[in-house]
Structure formats: structure tokens, C-alpha cells
């Protein structure tokens, strides 16, 4: 079976979710290749792509080094190692090794449809080199999605076979408009809609471990590894008295971001409903506060940045899928089984 290259109209559209959904709903032996990495994890002086790790773990694929799974994460590194003419050859060689005993391969492009073109690692070039069919994942405003999908399909004409499009993170209102208008336009243009995945709140939630990692924060109290979800983010600007009068302060799964010298607010936050506390400006509070947080096992993290920078950084954190996310694994598998036309996708 021909490999499937999954790309998207924009970054974080859900390529990995769709790919995993497909892979977990077939008996076929599936392999995975991501030529140009972006979800980097630097650990013990090694660099791996997080998506590779997830595929390896969830599909039981053999552990391979980064050099075997990916040409690189940085254009400079790739272009230093290989001259442009060599890249396609390297790509094929890697693909051959990874697909050796597999029934079919899922290839994931980096970021979006066009990214990597400078090195010949964009979605179209990779698909052509590896003779792959393409699945496009689209997410966002329905009108814009349809426009982009149509543009991509025109771009692919006579170059790469577009198997179809998967619309991801589709809210109820969007789904209605899609079914009412968008679908017909796409069908008329010859673009098959292979599935519409709903907006799944749990998949979009960030958690404390992710925040700890993305902020490179120091854990000064509590423990990590609990995958404690964060649904609300509060900046601790009010005094404790005033903050406690607000409804948001009493919401569950909240993250408090405040200066480490705001003892009143920190103490008030150490209770049920708080997923974690981020202390800014490298100010570590009194040991009694740390001890209290430890006692309640509420993660308290310290960062050197100011509160505004920290809050902005947290705001920009995108939820990830990690190898240990068993809950997300089940959600993705079940959602894909229900909403994707797996048969059509895997048609020879």
C-alpha cells in the first residue's frame, strides 16, 4: 500500500492526532516517518521528535535513534550535513529502512503544507519523492478552511494524489455550516472529506508537566508527573481578599501566575481547585509556603521571567500528545473510529 503523507493547512491543525487515529484503527503493521522534526525533546544529549516517541510507544514500534527517524530540526544543520542534491537520496534511504517490514507508512510533514521547501522537505516534494498519497488536515474558520483546501488541491493537480481532507477541531456551529455549504463545494472540486473530528476539550488541555517543560521552570514544591490539567489561568494581581471574591478564583483546575513575593495570594491559592502555581521573577517564597505546598502536593514552579512574559508564554503553549498520555490515546482511537472513514483512507 502506498504511504500516506499527512500534512495540514496550518501548524497545530492535528496531523499527529489524525495519523495516530488512523494507525490505531487498523490491523495493518504501520510505520512512521517524520523527515523534518519540530517537536523536539532534548534529553541526555539526544534530540528526538516527540511525535516519533508517541508513535513508537503507542504502536509498539522499535526504538530508533533520531538520525534514523529524522533528517533534523534546524535548516542550518540539514544544509550543513547534506548538499541539496543529496537530501532526496537521504530521504529515500531513511524511508526504506523505516518501512522495511511494514504494511504501510504514515509520513508526517513539519508544521504545514509549505514548510521545509528551502530544503526540499516540504509536503509536496516529500510526497513526490516517496510516491505517497496525501491527506490534508484542516482546522480553523470553516470559510478559510474550504478556501485553503481548494487552493491546495489545485496546487496538487497532476503532481500528488490528494486522498482527501480531514477537518479537525470542528465545533457544533462550524459543523453545521460545513455540512450545509462547505462539503458540497469540496465535493464539487473533487476533494473527498474523509472525516470531521469534533473539538475534544480534553485533547486541547495543557497540564502542569507541559507548563513545567515549556517554561523550563524549576519545581520548588509538589511533584511532577501527575498530568494535572489546567483549564483556567489566573494572573495574581489582586490582593488575596479581593481575588477570593472573584468566581474565577474558585474554579477548578486553575493555574495561578504571580510574583514569588505575593505571600497572601500564594497561601490563598494553596487549596482545592489549584492545579499549580507559577512564581515569577525568580522569587522563592518563605520555606513555610514551600512546605505547605509540598504537604498538599500542589506543584509550585519558579521562573526568572516577569509575570507578563510568563503569562504570555503560558498562553501560547499548545497542548501536546505524549507517550504517557493514556487518556488521550483512548480518546483519539475512539474518536477516529467513530468519525473517520478509515476504510476509505486505507483503500489500496
Amino acid at each position: 500500500m502506498k504511504p500516506l503523507l499527512i500534512t495540514s493547512t496550518r501548524t497545530h491543525a492535528g496531523k499527529t492526532t489524525v495519523g495516530l487515529g488512523i494507525a490505531m484503527n487498523t490491523d495493518k503493521k504501520v510505520g512512521y516517518f517524520k523527515p523534518y522534526g519540530d517537536h523536539l525533546v532534548y534529553s541526555k544529549k539526544n534530540l528526538v521528535d516527540l511525535d516519533c516517541q508517541v508513535y513508537n510507544e503507542w504502536l509498539g514500534l522499535e526504538d530508533r535513534s533520531n538520525e534514523e527517524c529524522c533528517l533534523g530540526f534546524d535548516p542550518e544543520k540539514i544544509m550543513t550535513h547534506w548538499i541539496p542534491e543529496e537530501v532526496q537520496g537521504v530521504l529515500k534511504k531513511m524511508y526504506d529502512q523505516l518501512s522495511e517490514d511494514k504494511d504501510f507508512m504514515i509520513i508526517e510533514s513539519c508544521r504545514n503544507f509549505t514548510y521545509g521547501g528551502i530544503m526540499g522537505l516540504d509536503a509536496v516534494t516529500v510526497a513526490q519523492t516517496l510516491d505517497a498519497d496525501m491527506i490534508l488536515v484542516a482546522e480553523g474558520d470553516v470559510d478559510l478552511i474550504v478556501d485553503k483546501v481548494l487552493a491546495v488541491s489545485k496546487c496538487l493537480e497532476n503532481r500528488v494524489n490528494l486522498r482527501g481532507v480531514v477537518i479537525n477541531k470542528c465545533g457544533e456551529g462550524d459543523k453545521f455550516r460545513l455540512e450545509d455549504q462547505g462539503m458540497q463545494v469540496l465535493m464539487k472540486a473533487g476533494v473527498e472529506v474523509l472525516g470531521v473530528l469534533p473539538e475534544e476539550v480534553l485533547l486541547g488541555l495543557i497540564d502542569i508537566d507541559l507548563i513545567l517543560n515549556k517554561l523550563n521552570a524549576k519545581l520548588v514544591a509538589g511533584t511532577e508527573g501527575g498530568q494535572i490539567p489546567v483549564e483556567t489561568v489566573l494572573i495574581g494581581a489582586l490582593t488575596a481578599d479581593q481575588a477570593m471574591k472573584t468566581a474565577k478564583f474558585h474554579s477548578m483546575n486553575k493555574l495561578i501566575i504571580t510574583g514569588g513575593d505575593r505571600l497572601d495570594l500564594i497561601f490563598a491559592s494553596l487549596g482545592e481547585g489549584t492545579s499549580g502555581i507559577v512564581l515569577t521573577n525568580n522569587i522563592i517564597p518563605h520555606p513555610k509556603v514551600i512546605a505547605k505546598a509540598d504537604e498538599l502536593d500542589i506543584p509550585v514552579m519558579s521562573v526568572p521571567m516577569d509575570t507578563f512574559t510568563t503569562a504570555t508564554a503560558v498562553h501560547h503553549i499548545i497542548a501536546e500528545i505524549r507517550p504517557e498520555d493514556d487518556v488521550k490515546k483512548d480518546i483519539i482511537r475512539d474518536m477516529a473510529a467513530k468519525e473517520l472513514n478509515i476504510g476509505k483512507i486505507l483503500e489500496e
Binding site: 519540530d38 532534548y42 544529549k45 530540526f73 534546524d74 521562573v303
Partner: peptide, 24 residues
């Protein structure tokens, strides 16, 4: 804190990986 420092790089391979990770 920004992941822009890599320590104890013992050979070219480790340095290359470290460089890549910093830039990314």
C-alpha cells in the same frame, strides 16, 4: 531557562545535536 545552554558536549555529534536543539 530558555533551553539555550547545553553542557558537557563530548564530541562532534553531541555538539551538532546541541546546536540544532538550541536553534530550534
Amino acid at each position: 531557562e530558555f533551553g539555550c545552554v547545553r553542557l558537557d558536549l563530548e564530541d562532534e555529534h553531541e555538539l551538532t545535536v546541541a546546536y540544532e536543539s538550541i536553534m530550534a
